[in-house]
Structure formats: structure tokens, C-alpha cells
Design a protein around this nucleic acid. Structure first.
Lengths: 211, 211, 211, 211
DNA sequence: TATGAATGAGGATTCATTCAT
DNA sequence: GATGAATGAATCCTCATTCAT
């Protein structure tokens, strides 16, 4: 195979690409276009680097996606976990703190566009699904279940299965992000996230409180 | 009797492919593999027709997708609406009836794979998103809000904003279908849908009941 | 992912691509450019079909290559095997017949450009190497070893290890094709293949004859 | 004594990369993976230098390849030529000495992986092919032809065309190196090089001996 | 109406080559 | 001299779409 035609460089070289700039660009693209619909070339362009440079930092599309998830979801959850474990006060206050802490860190940011993507692509990228379950779903569920257990242990909550209770607490959280990140733009009736979360808290107070 | 010359046609011609058979096949594929991941060739194979025939019935992948969504979602909700309007009994019983009626008609069937598709593709198909909001989200929301209002009117539920309450009732319903249709296959912890719905009802009872 | 821009077809459609036309085109390219250096697009162009059509007939580059080898080397060897097994006459005559039969069917044709390719790419495409050993080297060796055994059994050849004798018979056959297909074009001294083979036969006669 | 600020250089700078170390590394890679399959990054890593440094010594991959060939093949042949010219003894002994001398110096070493590369790349590098013919093939052939002529002149060999006889002597030598350097790793039947060469010599003895 | 062979744009990934430091 | 991050052309393969039969 003969040497390919010499190419004259017309580009200017960047100093140093930083991985976070790349994952930030990738996040936008993934959330806008979906996993399959995201073209690595676009991500590169958004990050101001070339296609090839992407591969210096991430082995492939899948690893890039995982990095986005790790940065955007795994660490905030760990952070929240820390706060929850150290909290000293009523469990209802803890619940509120967790809910709004999560909203600030995740729900209100672009990262919250990830779950819809995972749900949609799980069938095609099982490895991604497993990763997401292990790194996001399970830890997230555990934080919430821990709160429920704490409430029961302290006699603030009624006796209820923490596993299923955690699901009921999490579902509206997931739902509101998916709504805001996709259907909200096309909706006739608007939902105010804060009021939504307040209602959720209010109903949880009644649903969980010891009679 | 001389053996007649055999010129076997390589394919057997179907009489009439029916669009519903095609959308049924497409639904399965879309739900399993997502929009981008669905190969028209697979849909055709599942429907027992050829790739070319698909294009006699649907202009392109996009139109097929729209047809799938349109066909799968509208009527069950209308049916439930009828039942709700005619119901005569306690509103909590009505809530239970609605929830499990929906589960049987929608939640437990393949159609329930559609929401995740909509969420994921809303950005790419705004028109479809609007359609879905108008034909599914809003009517669905209305049924539930109607139940809440009924409960309040009859003094069974405490005074609560029916709009937001409806959201809180719907979120876990949507969530459980999305879970079952995608992440459940990769999960470490299992969720039993019936127990999930029972917990939901139980918590709603506490959350909505007049003190 | 939005539907890609509709493309206006500007091409004319062929009736039916025949696999042999494709393998013929591929053979030329492989022999000229090597395995890695062969671009499937070129093969397609040579065969007068499009890139995509190639994939209707061959799963991938590797399978295409295997098909070329099967058609160009495996069947001729099988054919020669048949002739050898049925031969009735002196084993020296059989040797001559095999040698020139092979020359006509393989050595003098483009197919003989394959071995050099295999030797060069074996490290990079182990699967190809294994295939070639199993389908070409071993059967080819067996035919020759069978001739040697026949000669010994009939008392025409002296007692000699058939395995290594077969190697000595085959080496110049392989060598002459590699020479003709690559270095011959750049050589100062010419080799006449027929005279080369005659010398080979002559030396074999002395080397193998029972004293 | 205050601790001095440590700014450790991330790399250690080599004093002087020597071209031979690079060609040695390149030879290994070319022989293992072929021309196209050789990645300059691997060559650099093997040579303990960086990709960029490679380009200080060789203009491009092609020139590196040429350098490898030039360095690896010319001198051993000259050396053997000297030994042959000075030999005093039976020509059959000389043949044996040449054969095993070559095996030790070339055949058994990595350099013997070059011919297969040349054969494969001759089409792409005509200039290299010409170089190889002039510097390796022709001189090599001459040494062997000289031996044949000596044998005939001394009445030890029968009257035979030295040119073609030399080819017959050389072919198995080339063949065994190509085998050992590529297909041997994937073969089912093993060849022992020494026994192979012994058989070659044994057959040559019969084939060349004066009756 | 039904078919399925043919098409070619599109995208992930590789790697020879450049050049600011 | 030495480095290695950055580049982008090149290539394999996929799949939505077309159309002669």
C-alpha cells in the first residue's frame, strides 16, 4: 500500500484539550440527539478539537458515554450519599434536603437528559444498561432506601418496605427530569418543577408519616 | 402422466399485507431496539413481508414510527375514561380500578414501550411529541385529575391541587413501564409490578385521604 | 436521529452481479495491492458494482478473500488430487503431469499471486493463515506426499521420508510463482518457468530414483 | 535545608537514538505484522523512542522500510561469498557449509523475514524491488552458481545448467525461511528446519552427483 | 401489489504525519 | 535533539431507500 498523498496542514493546533470540555460537549450532543444519533465528529467540533483527538482521551463512543455518565451522575450521587449519611435532624427534613439537593445538582442540569437515553437504548447497548444500573440506579436507590430505613428506625415513618418505598420516591424524580428534557417543550400544560417537588414532598409526608 | 415442468416461484406472494401487522412488528422492534436501532429489514421480516413492501404502506421510517405511536396509544385511554366516568363507588376503589385497568390494558402490554421512545425521540420528532401530548398525555392526565377532583368533591380526599396530584399518581405508572421495558432485563434487584402498584396505591391512600 | 437527506439516484442498475465477477476483480486487487492494501471500494468498482452490493455476496473482506482462495486454489488442488489418484502409469510421469497440470491451472495464472500475500499477512490475519494452511497447504502437501509414497511403494523411488520429500518438491513450485508475480518484473536475469520446471523435474528424477 | 520544589520532567530524554536501534525494532515489526500492519507507534515504542523522533531519522514509513532492508541483507552474503571462494575441499562439503552457514547467519535470524516482505511489496515499491534484486538476489544467486560451476569443473557434479541449478538450490532455502517466519505458527504439521536442510542436501547430492 | 437486488451516503475508528514546546 | 498531543484522510461496514421485474 503506497504512502497516501501528503497533506498540507491548514489547521491551527490547540494547546491542550481537557477531558471535561469533551464530556461537556458530548453530554449536550447525547442529550439532544440520543446515543446512536450522536456523531463523534459533532462532539469533537463542539469541543473544538478534531475527531482523532477524541480517541486520545476516550477509547470509543461507549467509553465516552460512560465518562459522561460518571461525571454527571455518579459523582453527584456519591456526594448526596455523603450528605445523607452525615445528616443530623428530622428524616422529613433529610428527605427534603435530598430532593432539592438532587434537583440542583442533577435534575435542573443537562445531565438529567441521560436517563431517557438509557431507557431508550438499553436494548441496543446492554453493556451500557448494566453499567448504568450498577453505577447510577442501584446507588441512587440505596441512598433513598437508607433514608426510608432511617425514618422507620427513628419512629418517624410508618413501617413500610424500604425497597418499594424508595421506588415511589424516585419515580417522580426521574419522571420530572424526563418531562422537562423532552415533552415540556411541546406541552400545553406547564409543570413547575419546584411546585412539583413540593407536592411530591407533601404527599410523601402524608404517605410515610406514622399515624 | 408426464411430469410437468416445475418452475417454482422463489417466493410466495402474500395476498394483502395489512398495515396493522406491519405496525405490530415495528412496535416490537422499536421497543426492543429504539428508533435508530430498528432495522427496517427486521421489521419486514417480522411482518413476513419484504423490505420493499414496507414502502408501499409507509413512506419512510419516520412515518412508520408515527403510525406505530398513533395506533398504539389512543383508544385504551378513551376506554378507561368511560369506565371512570361511569364508576359508582368510593374514589379509592376507583383509583385502584383505574390503576389496574390501565396495567392490564396498557402497562403489561407491548404498547407500554412507547413512552420511552417518545421521550427519547421528542427532540427529533417535535410533531410527534405534540401529537403524543395532545392525544395521550393530556387525556391521560385528565382522567386522573378527574378522579382526584371527584375524591375532593366527595370529601374523600383532602384538598390538594388536582393537576399536581395527577402528576404524582401518573409518574410511577410511567416509570414502571419504562423500567419493565428496558432496565429490568439488566437489573440486579427485581421489581414486581403488582406489588409496586399496590405500594403506590397504599401510599396514595395515606397521601390523599382526608385526615 | 432525523431521517437523512433524501438522495436523488443518478445511477443505473445492473441486472445481476455474479459472484465470480466479484472474486475475479478481488483477486486482481489482492494480488496487486496485498490484503490490507486492497480497498473494497476498488474491488467493487472493478467488478462494476457498488460497495454495498459487495456485502450482499460476501460478509466482509475476510470472507471475500477466502472465496477468492477457494475458487482459485482449493478447487484446482482438489481437481489435481482427483487426477493423481486415478493416474495409471510410471510415477515419474505422474510427477510431471502433476507439476505441469498445476502450472497450467495455478502457477501461470493470477491466482499464484496469493501465496506471497498469505506469507506477508499471516501475522496480521491469523484466521486467514489458519484457513490457508487447512485448505491449501495441507491438501497440496498431501497430493505430493501421496505421489512420493506411490513411487516408493511401486519401487520406483528410493526410500525417503515422504513428508520432507514433498516439501522439497513443493518449494520450487511456490518459489517460481512468487518470483514471476513480483520480482520477475524487476530482475536482470530472466527465468523461463517451463525450463525451470523441467530442471526441477530432472533433478527430482535423479534425487528420487532408486539407484 | 528546605525541600526544593520538585518539577520532575515527565519523560527522560535519551542521549542519542541510533538509527540501527530503530531499524532493528522496525525489522521485528515488519516481519511480524507486514508492511501495512506495522504501526510506527509500535516501532517507536520498541525502540524506546517517541513517534516524533522516528521522523528525525527517517523521512517516512517507506524510507524506514527501505533502510531496514538495506541494513539487513547485504553483508552476510558478501561474507559467505568470501568463505566459498576460499574453500578448499569437496564441492559437496562446500554446499553443506554454504547451506548451514547461511542458515546460521541469515535463515535462523529475524532478517530472514525480509524476503516475504519484498515479495509482497515489490508491486508497491518497484525501486526497492530493483535494489533487492541487485543487492541480494543476484549476488546470492552468483554464490550458488559459482559452487555449481566449481562442482562441474572438478568433475564432482554432472553437467547441468548452473543458472537453473542455482535456482533449485535456492528455492527451498527461501521457502523454509518464509515458512518459519509466517505459516509455521499456524501449521498443523511441523517442519524441523535442520532436517529440512539435511533432506535438501541429501536430494541435491543425488541430483547433482555425476553418475 | 410484492419482491429483493442494488445503491451510496454516513459514521466509527485507525494511524501516518506534523509541530509547538 | 526529543517529545507526544493533535490532526484528518482513509477505510470498513451498515442500512434506509429505490426500482426493474
Amino acid at each position: 500500500m503506497p504512502t497516501p498523498a501528503k497533506t498540507e496542514p491548514r489547521w491551527t493546533r490547540r494547546k491542550h484539550a481537557r477531558p471535561e470540555e469533551i464530556t461537556a460537549a458530548a453530554l449536550e450532543s447525547f442529550v439532544e440527539r440520543g446515543y446512536a444519533g450522536t456523531r463523534l465528529e459533532d462532539v469533537a467540533a463542539r469541543a473544538g478539537i478534531s475527531k482523532g483527538t477524541l480517541y486520545l482521551y476516550f477509547e470509543n463512543k461507549e467509553e465516552l458515554f460512560k465518562a459522561v455518565v460518571r461525571e454527571g451522575l455518579v459523582s453527584p450521587i456519591a456526594e448526596i450519599r455523603g450528605i445523607v449519611d452525615q445528616f443530623d435532624g428530622s428524616t422529613f427534613d433529610l428527605l427534603r434536603m435530598m430532593l432539592f439537593g438532587w434537583w440542583e445538582r442533577v435534575g435542573a442540569t443537562r445531565v438529567s437528559g441521560i436517563p431517557k437515553l438509557i431507557f431508550a437504548e438499553a436494548g441496543n447497548f446492554p453493556e451500557l444498561a448494566r453499567f448504568y444500573v450498577a453505577e447510577v440506579v442501584d446507588p441512587g436507590h440505596d441512598v433513598i432506601a437508607a433514608i426510608v430505613k432511617r425514618g422507620i428506625a427513628r419512629g418517624e415513618f410508618r413501617d413500610i418496605d424500604p425497597h418499594y418505598a424508595a421506588q415511589m420516591i424516585a419515580a417522580p424524580m426521574v419522571f420530572i427530569t424526563m418531562w422537562c428534557r423532552s415533552l415540556a417543550h411541546h406541552a400545553t400544560r406547564t409543570i413547575d418543577p419546584v411546585q412539583y417537588l413540593e407536592t411530591h414532598l407533601d404527599m410523601l409526608r402524608h404517605a410515610l408519616a406514622r399515624t
